[in-house]
Amino acid sequence: MIQAGFETGLLLAQAPFPEAMGAATLNHYLFVSAAMFALGLIGFMTRRNLIIMFLCTELMFQAAGLAMIAFGRYHMNFDGQTFVIFVLTIAAAEAAMALALVVLLFRKRESLDADLWAELKG
């Protein structure tokens, strides 16, 4: 059931799905999650298009969701998945609001450049 070594990877493909995953550790998923989060963060900081910035926040949501499901799997309970449902809910709500705001902002300036909105200058 427990497969060892990379060389057996192809064999694993024929193995029943859940059982084949025994080799991956929690750390693998957490790493993917962290990297995804970092990418979202970097995107948020570098991109100037408001829509892409919001897409980057969605990427960060995804990273969080992945981490939660991995933790839930590791600890053998379903709270992680339940929470991802709520993350999806909030993401949907956030997308609705954010996109409405983006549309408003776009109507004002005919541009999606976030740098145009700097009225809160100190």
């Binding site: 060892a4 694993l12 080799a23 991956a24 995804m36």
Partner: peptide, 20 residues
């Protein structure tokens, strides 16, 4: 005693990160 994660994990991880 633990082995490497299988191909699917690597494929999906690379796809996800590359897509990101």
């Amino acid at each position: 005693g633990a082995g490497m994660p299988n191909l699917f994990f690597h494929a999906f991880a690379i796809l996800a990160l590359g897509g990101g």
